[in-house]
Design a protein around this nucleic acid. Structure first.
Lengths: 124, 124
DNA sequence: CGTATAGTTCTAGCATCATAGAAGTATGGA
DNA sequence: TCCATACTTCTATGATGCTAGAACTATACG
């Protein structure tokens, strides 16, 4: 990840409402949550929520898809993983063999994420 | 980690100079880097750098210690781990068995960090 | 004590961001 | 076509943040 994009992503998360939205979407999984429900449950007027979602989307942290009249937002796990990787990257330069696996794990944080692999909901 | 603190930490990292400083300190390891050297190498005047370091310190992301006339700053790996944990926490609520180990790994990101355990440099 | 080095605090100006009212766009149903 | 629902875009205002000049504090050394 590039520095500028990392700053944009961190700025997007550095706001109480947006951070709450993002974590809610992370927890919600691939199905996502409608913009209206996010606004309602977080006590924010729709236009403000829309502005926040726009910021998160511009940072690549969320994606949206229209379902009838609602617009569902989902967390972009890949982007989140890249951001985490960027933060721990080259951690403790002296002992990379310790941090390398961590970075890989973080990179694999695309759990139940992209459409390429299944959510693994059957194990529960 | 509490929401407010997470926002403060993310805000601290959501700025180009501060993000560069933090990553440099993450890479530098336990020894840290002097404030003056950070200012010089990143092309920032000392007082501005001091302000940035103050923000990072207030967020708990860095610690400082005086060595003669210089003040050395080090990354607080524990706080970083907590922040990463906070972001991936409860990821994909449907399949926690996938994300739980990830969260634990991130929590253990205190590699070569605190004075409690060794850097494990012998594996190389 | 006097001077140089290393950082910090004070202060002010400029820029960016968060918020919400009002208006506009898109979908669904009668 | 007409209306209701669901979001978004436009706009303006108040708040917060970044930056750097100037002055201040702390350490080192002769």
């Amino acid at each position: 990840m590039e520095t500028k994009l990392a700053v944009v992503a961190l700025s997007a998360l550095a706001q109480e409402t947006r951070l709450a939205v993002f974590r809610r979407l992370v927890q919600a999984g691939p199905e996502g949550v409608a913009a209206g429900e996010l606004a309602r449950t977080l006590g924010v007027v729709p236009n403000t929520m829309s502005a926040h979602l726009n910021v998160l989307g511009h940072a690549g942290l969320v994606r949206s898809r229209r379902v009838s009249r609602s617009i569902f937002y989902t967390a972009n796990y890949d982007q989140m993983s890249e951001l985490l990787s960027y933060l721990v990257q080259d951690c403790c330069n002296g002992s990379p063999e310790v941090c390398a696996p961590l970075a890989m794990l973080v990179r694999d944080a695309a759990c139940c994420a992209s459409d390429q692999h299944q959510p693994l909901t059957e194990t529960a």
